[in-house]
Design a protein around this nucleic acid. Structure first.
Length: 603
RNA sequence: GGCCCCGUGGUGUAGCGGUCUAACAUGCCACCCUGUCACGGUGGAGAUCGUCGGUUCGAAUCCGAUCGGGGUCGCCA
């Protein structure tokens, strides 16, 4: 090793030792007679002092140092002179008095700051990703990711799980997300698909008898990116035999609780993890991935306004619609412009409009004294005071609160209010950023009716087992069948869906048929799986939490690109390498491929 | 594919019809400085304001198109 110690590890206990350090020049402070260098390596930063009285040659050479030069410096660790300690630095009590300096490599001036955490155009960061990763915050994110994955491995190993790799070149199963395809050279016209997840393979490992499997698995889905989604991502994929829902949920709760306590002890958890039924989550939060770090819960006002004169409400309720709302504390004073902004947000999410009711701040001490003329709302003249009071009671609203009401199709109403709720939770600073609010969502329906396609679709995936007692309903009323399916959600992000799987051929075939597959399709796509179920498949189930999102939440980020070493941008491009890129005609030939539009062969 | 936001020295921002021959901070270069730590001081270089077109006597500024980026809807079994 070129170094005896790392920069970040030095403390006053090292005082008196002669150490050799190697790292990057983080910052240079040249006082003419005296030069201070903040030397940075993976472990942190330490101050190195160049004093001509200690070494004239080292001091002279230090004159040439610039940011990001790579250097090796030898010197004695010394306690800093009293009054010059730097409490902002863990190594701030000491410094290294350099007696020798070697420049291992020079550096061009970086295209953006490495020693300051100012936001820079993301494409530039991605182009010079290796420089961006030098930033302490980015470096810490990647190290955090390492600790998370290490913890998961250790935890599951201790629980008797076996880590097993599964193929990246696998078979296309065209339902679900779009596949990434890999053309076969040996088999003209045939393709592998990159796995959207190792779902089938892990089930087959259960049939194989491994009982407890896990893998930190890369998954590939060719769909448009989002802040929390990119084409390739990582899951902690796990599967267990001879378990029920309770076993999986208990394992997850223990895993995440001890993970947070180990790698991020300063963050708080809600324990035990609350459980919501799908119906309850939709009812109270308008979504199946609720952020429960704050209130502003949705309330159903349909019953209250059922007999309303107000055409907007009446029309909604007489159709198959709902009237629901949320209540914003202390927002009654919102200006016309602010209300218009909220209405715009509602419209952007599909609402025709937004009804607002502002409760006066003063003028009534008990609800009895509230009169209609004091309530500020375009709907006031169509409502009775009793209806308004009922709403106030339903929201437990206080004087000065603002009620936001949306009417229409239930799906739209939920979506709009979910959006408004999360936006206002942020704006009103109701969110505790140090809190990780994990929740389990259970009791999902097995199937969802797709009106456009005119067939049943699985809510999760076609391998999810229905609840035993609901199996007869598959023939009579499929919408009523509950799934043995659970989700884990944290701070409004879905970390994973999981389920107890179907483990008999008969039931699996029945589900495939219900989903509209012909016998031939079933055989072609899932024949290998069905055959496996015939050979003594054990009852089994599992889940696969998304590691990128977990690390993002632990890092306090809002974007998974901050916790992936080499991410792709929104257009699925690796800005650093330029992938995807053109290939030569020879390569295409070998793969028996021909581009449809010869023009696009040019770069 | 739809919608919203953003493109101004290396970086981050300001300017939003004329006074812009484009401002500020930082970075960069040179010189000075022995206790700084976002060191300080003096001086200097560095931008045809993403691109194209239009409106106008006059465009960084207004309009249109286009390209690039971010967010989001659709999509994500």
């Amino acid at each position: 090793m070129l170094k005896s110690h790392s920069c970040g590890e030095l403390r006053k206990e090292h005082t008196g030792q002669v150490v050799t350090l190697a790292g990057w020049v983080h910052r240079r402070r040249d006082h003419g007679g005296l030069i201070f260098i903040d030397l940075r390596d993976r472990e942190g930063i330490v101050q190195v002092v160049f004093n001509p009285e200690v070494s004239k040659t080292a001091h002279e050479l230090a004159n040439d140092l610039r940011n990001e030069y790579v250097i090796k410096a030898t010197g004695e660790v010394a306690q800093r002179p009293p009054g010059t300690e730097n409490r902002k630095l863990p190594s701030g009590e000491i410094e290294v008095i350099a007696s020798d300096l070697e420049i291992l490599n020079t550096s061009k001036t970086p295209p953006f700051y490495i020693n300051e955490d100012v936001e820079v155009d993301e494409n530039l960061c991605l182009k010079y990703r290796y420089l961006h990763l030098r930033r302490p915050r980015m470096k810490d994110n990647i190290l955090l990711r390492h600790r998370v994955e290490k913890f998961m491995r250790d935890f599951l190993d201790a629980k008797g799980f076996v880590e097993i790799e599964t193929p990246i070149l696998f078979k296309s199963t065209p339902e679900g997300a779009r596949d990434y395809l890999v053309p076969s050279r040996i088999h003209p016209g045939k393709f592998y698909a990159l796995p959207q997840s190792p779902q089938q393979l892990k089930q087959l490992l259960m049939v194989a008898g491994f009982e407890k499997y896990y893998q930190i698995a890369r998954c590939f889905r060719d769909e448009d990116s989002r802040a929390d989604r990119q084409p390739e991502f990582t899951q902690l994929d796990l599967e267990m035999s001879f378990v029920d829902e309770e076993d999986i949920l208990k394992l997850l709760e223990e895993l995440f609780t001890s993970l947070v306590e180990t790698v991020k002890p300063e963050m708080r958890l809600v324990k035990p993890f609350p459980r919501f039924s799908y119906a309850e989550s939709m009812e109270r939060y308008g979504t199946d991935k609720p952020d429960i770090r704050f209130g502003l819960e949705i309330r159903d006002l349909s019953a209250i306004v059922a007999s309303s004169e107000f055409a907007v409400f009446r029309a909604a309720i007489q159709g198959s619609g709902k009237v629901k709302g949320i209540c914003l504390p202390g927002c009654a004073g919102y200006s016309h412009k602010q209300l218009e902004e909220l209405t715009e947000l509602a419209r952007a999410n599909g609402a025709k409009g937004l009804i607002t009711l502002a409760l006066p701040l003063g003028g009534y001490t008990s609800l009895e004294q509230l009169t209609l003329d004091k309530v500020k709302s375009v709907a006031a003249k169509y409502l009775t005071i009793e209806q308004v009071k009922e709403m106030v009671r339903k929201f437990e609203a206080k004087p000065g609160d603002l009620m936001l009401i949306v009417a229409g199709e239930p799906k739209m109403v939920d979506k709009v209010l979910d959006e408004l709720r999360r936006e206002m939770g942020r704006r009103l600073n109701l969110i505790d950023l140090n809190l990780l609010a994990f929740v389990f969502v259970v009791g999902y329906p097995l199937l969802e009716w797709n009106d456009e396609a005119g067939l049943w679709e699985p809510m999760h995936h076609p391998f999810t087992s229905p609840c035993e007692e609901d199996i007869p309903l598959l023939d009579t009323d499929p919408s009523k069948v509950r799934a043995r399916h659970y989700d884990i959600v944290c701070n409004g992000y879905e970390l994973s869906s999981g389920s107890i799987r179907i483990h008999t051929r008969q039931l699996q075939e029945k589900i495939f048929h219900l989903l509209g597959y012909s016998s031939e399709e079933i055989e072609e796509r899932f024949g290998h799986l069905l055959e496996a179920l015939d050979f003594g498949a054990p009852p089994h189930g599992g889940i696969a939490p998304g590691i990128d999102r977990v690390v993002m939440l632990l890092a306090g980020g809002e974007n998974i690109r901050e916790v992936i070493a080499f991410p792709k941008n929104q257009g699925a491009i690796d800005v650093m390498s330029g992938a995807p890129s053109s290939v030569s005609e020879a390569q295409l030939d070998e793969l028996h491929l021909k581009l449809k539009d010869e023009g696009i062969i040019q770069t």
